[in-house]
Design a protein around this nucleic acid. Structure first.
Length: 262
DNA sequence: ATGGTTGCAGCGCAA
């Protein structure tokens, strides 16, 4: 069994104590982190290595930043999306534990039809093109990350309030659906088809968490070779209720077997 | 309630 987790930590410096507690408790084999907000030289490697993780990072100052933690050796590390000139650290990919994984931090987009929204769609377009190539490998492949898109109104606490707003607009939903339609499986929804309140993010502001006003914007997307082995997918909601926490909850999934890529 | 909260960096910006 292989456990893969993903968490937008909103600063690994601010989240380190809680991250370490959660790693000890859940002991995931592979962890995909987003919004580490730290340059690689300052990444808190030692504390995490002490829990027997290897680490691959792609960070920058103040914003963005992604990383992969793995109990297995991390091989074939690539940073950024092929063919996409981007000075923002939002994508890191590697092979570990017999699966190809990537930590993905899709741009938020700010407001629909803003320049940042155009950048969001451009990122998704290049993720689509890169995925087309990855799928030709016929490997177990898992994207985990903050996609900043709620796939449908079922993933939103108040669809009317969010109608055509950022994270929920038609163009970004179409971009995500097009990506998934290449042959990927939305792991959380596939295993919880009728679950309401399947949320991964709650706004810090207002009554967000207290009133369970959440959105499902963090996802696992699996190739068929990975989806065939998917046995569980869960949201660690309790972490969102912890003190000094991120506005995102971690997500975790389990694959049967291990080390399929030889 | 055009507010509210958090983190970084050093107080406006991104989310």
């Amino acid at each position: 069994m292989l456990t893969i987790a993903s968490w937008n930590v909103n600063s690994i410096r601010a989240r380190l104590p809680l991250l370490l507690t959660w790693l000890r408790e859940k002991n995931p084999d592979i962890v995909l982190l987003q919004e580490t907000k730290i340059i690689d030289d300052q990444f808190p490697r030692e504390e995490i290595e002490d829990l027997n993780y290897n680490i691959a990072t792609s960070g920058q100052k103040s914003y963005n930043g992604v990383a992969i933690l793995s109990k297995f050796p991390i091989e074939d590390i690539t940073r950024g999306l092929s063919g996409f000139e981007d000075d923002q650290a939002r994508y890191i990919e590697a092979v570990a534990g017999g699966v190809r994984v990537a930590s993905v931090y899709v741009p938020n987009g700010s407001e629909v039809d803003s320049p940042k929204f155009d950048y969001k769609l451009a990122f998704l377009h290049h993720l689509y093109e890169h995925t087309q190539e990855l799928l030709t490998y016929d490997e177990p492949l898992i994207f985990g990350g903050d996609f900043n898109i709620a796939p449908s109104d079922d993933d939103v606490y108040d669809p009317q309030a969010w109608h055509e707003k950022i994270l929920c607009s038609t163009p970004e939903r179409e971009a995500l659906r097009t990506l998934i339609n290449l042959g990927l499986t939305d792991g959380l929804r596939a295993l919880h088809p009728n679950e309401t309140s399947l949320y991964t993010w709650w706004d810090y502001q207002g009554r967000g968490w207290r009133a369970n006003q959440g959105l499902r914007i963090d996802h696992f997307l699996l190739s068929s070779q990975a989806a065939d082995r998917l046995s569980s997918a869960t949201i660690d909601r309790d972490m969102r209720g912890a003190a000094k926490t991120s506005d995102h909850a971690p997500i975790r999934c389990q694959l049967t077997g291990d080390r399929v890529i030889s």
